[in-house]
Every structure is written in C-alpha cells, then in structure tokens.
Amino acid sequence: MTVMKRVVKPRTRRAKRGLEHRAPKITENTKQCLFFYGTKTSDSVRQCLKNFYSFKKQDGKYLQKKKRYLPFEDILPIEHLSQKYDASLFCTASHTKKRPNNIILGRMYDHHLLDMVELGLENYRALAEFKNEKISAGTKPCMVFCGTQFEDVTEFRKLKNLLIDFFRGVEAQAVRLQGFEHALQFTAIEGKVLFRSYRILLKKSGTRIPRVELEEIGPSLTLSLRRNKFASEDLMKRACRQPKQLKPKKVKNINRDVFGTKLGRVHMTKQDLGKLQTRKMKGLKKETNDKKENSESSNQEASASGPVDVDQ
C-alpha cells in the first residue's frame, strides 16, 4: 500500500509568499530560534531565557505558553513547533529537583532533531543587574573561546560549534568598525563554561587605530555540561553539505595559510643558460660565424708557415 504525499497549493498571495520563503534555497535564510519553557521553572532560568532572547530578537520567537516539554524523552512536540514556525534552533528552560536550573540548547535539520546539549545554570547575574548602557538590538557579536578543552575534549568541541551556530546571527561579508560593539566570551575551565558579555568601546588614542576597552554588560553565568545527544557523523555530514553553486572553484597550485594569505606554486621549464640575456659588454659579445671562420683560417696558416725570425 502506497501513501501519496499531500501537495499544499497556496490559495492566496500571502500563502504563496510563505511557501516560497520556506522553500529550499541556494543561500538559506537566517536561522530562526524558538524560546520556550516548561511548566516548572525558576526565576533564574526564566530571566536567562529572556536575556538570550534579547540578543536574538531579530531572528527569534518567544513562546509564553507553558507546556511540559521533555526533549530528551519526547522530541516530537518540539519538532512540530520547528515545522510550524520554520525554526532551526531552540532554547528551553526547566527546573526540577534532580536537574535544577536547567537549560537545553538544540538545533534541527529538516525539522528533525540534529543535536542538543543540556546545561546547568550557576552563578547567574541578569542584564538588569549591570547598571550601564546596553548594546543596540540585532548587533552581530564577536565570539571568543578560551581554554584548551574546546579543542581537546569532544563534548566541548561540539558545544563550541553549537554555541557559534546559536549566537552568530545574520551572516555578514563585511563588518563596519563602528558597529562592532558586542563581544561574547566563553571560557572552559574545570569542566565548566564561563559566559561573559561585554560592550566594546572605541576611544580616541591619538592615532588612526582606536583604543579598545571592554565594559561588562551582562548576563554573567556559569554553565555545566549535563546530558547531550549529538548527531552521528553521517547525519552531520549530510546536514553540512553545500550546493555545487556555492562551492568555490578549485585553482591548481594555489592555497591559503591560517592567516588568509594567498600562496601559489609556479612551475617553470628547464632553462637554457646559453641563451640567457646578460649585460652587454664587448668582452662578452659573441662573434659572428664569418669572423670565427676567418680567425680560424689565419691561425691555421700561421701555424703551417712555422716560426718567423724577427732579426732577418
């Protein structure tokens, strides 16, 4: 028995635009993120969820309706929300006796779970506790990762990849220096991640290069790793596949180093040093064939006549 897949046909122009927005593209839309929490939460995780949402207002959706979400036990309700709002990222909060102040970050591929990480919230200070000027909404952050665990430990390395995907926002080819005002620092130490948020201040230095200062604006928190569910290598490879149109054309013998410097290898044929152009001097000037023949014939006649007596 075969099941025919229902084809959705738009009846209005608005529905047609919505289907075109959701359709696959060569360059995908900015990833949307869903923020929601379960029936039991604490003030800390609710405030943390709102602070994260303030960083992603441009491409986020905050759901205030409480519902019992258990991603590690049943992911189907979250996959349904992902398909409904066309979202690829989600952040949910909960609080239980077994796992207090719990935050789960996850992402989807084709509206199905790709991977997610459960984090414990500690030493939390909200945005409102820092009495200073905040950044403007929608600012693209600069992310700094400190600690060898982000490179050596598999869980931290995959967590780093998830955090970059979660906070990076709109993809930009170039960034204006004056609009570069937000920095997020993640420090891995003793199995935990310290999260800090700074406002970048560009002050006068007397030269063309400004003097950079950092002012902490919050939130400030410590995250500890709990449960995780990472994607398999095959699924991750399929999710990261790029279309042929976006792949750069490979140029032979040209590559780039870690700093982006273009390096090339030049292949030359074997050179004939006899035809090498040198500085034009009379001593290095080549004789013509006629002069060579005349000089050779005169030398032969002189040798045949024998020695000549100068006194005669």
Rank of each mutant, 00 (worst) to 15 (best):
N161L: 10
K131I: 01
H112R: 14
L163N: 05
Y37G: 00
I164V: 07
L63A: 11
L89M: 06
V117S: 02
D59N: 14
E151Q: 12
K84D: 13
T154W: 09
R46S: 04
L119G: 06
K160R: 15
S94H: 01
F90L: 05
Q47C: 03
N51H: 11
I164C: 08
Q32T: 13
D152N: 11
G147L: 03
K61N: 14
Q64Y: 11
K57W: 04
C91T: 09
N51C: 13
F72W: 02
G120Q: 13
H95I: 02
R125N: 05
E155P: 10
E129D: 04
K31C: 11
K25L: 09
V144D: 07
S42Y: 00
Y69W: 12
Y62Q: 05
E122L: 15
D115V: 04
L113W: 06
L89S: 03
I75W: 10
D86L: 00
G120W: 04
T96A: 08
K57L: 12
F156Q: 10
K31D: 14
K25H: 08
Q47S: 11
Q32H: 13
M116P: 03
V153E: 15
H111Q: 07
F72Y: 01
I75K: 11
F36W: 06
E155S: 15
F90H: 04
D86F: 07
Y62G: 05
K40S: 10
F130H: 01
K56Y: 07
M108E: 02
A93L: 03
A23E: 09
L162Y: 05
Y37R: 03
F90G: 04
D110N: 13
N123D: 15
K61I: 15
A93H: 01
L113N: 08
Y69K: 08
D86I: 00
H95M: 03
K57V: 12
L70N: 14
L70M: 12
C146E: 13
K31Q: 12
E129A: 00
L34H: 06
T39E: 14
K66A: 13
R22C: 12
L159S: 07
F52P: 00
E151F: 06
K158Y: 02
K25G: 05
S94A: 08
S42E: 00
K40P: 02
L114Q: 00
Q64R: 14
T39K: 10
A93Q: 00
L105H: 01
Y53D: 08
D86W: 02
E73C: 09
R22K: 15
N51T: 09
G106A: 04
E79H: 09
D152W: 04
N51W: 05
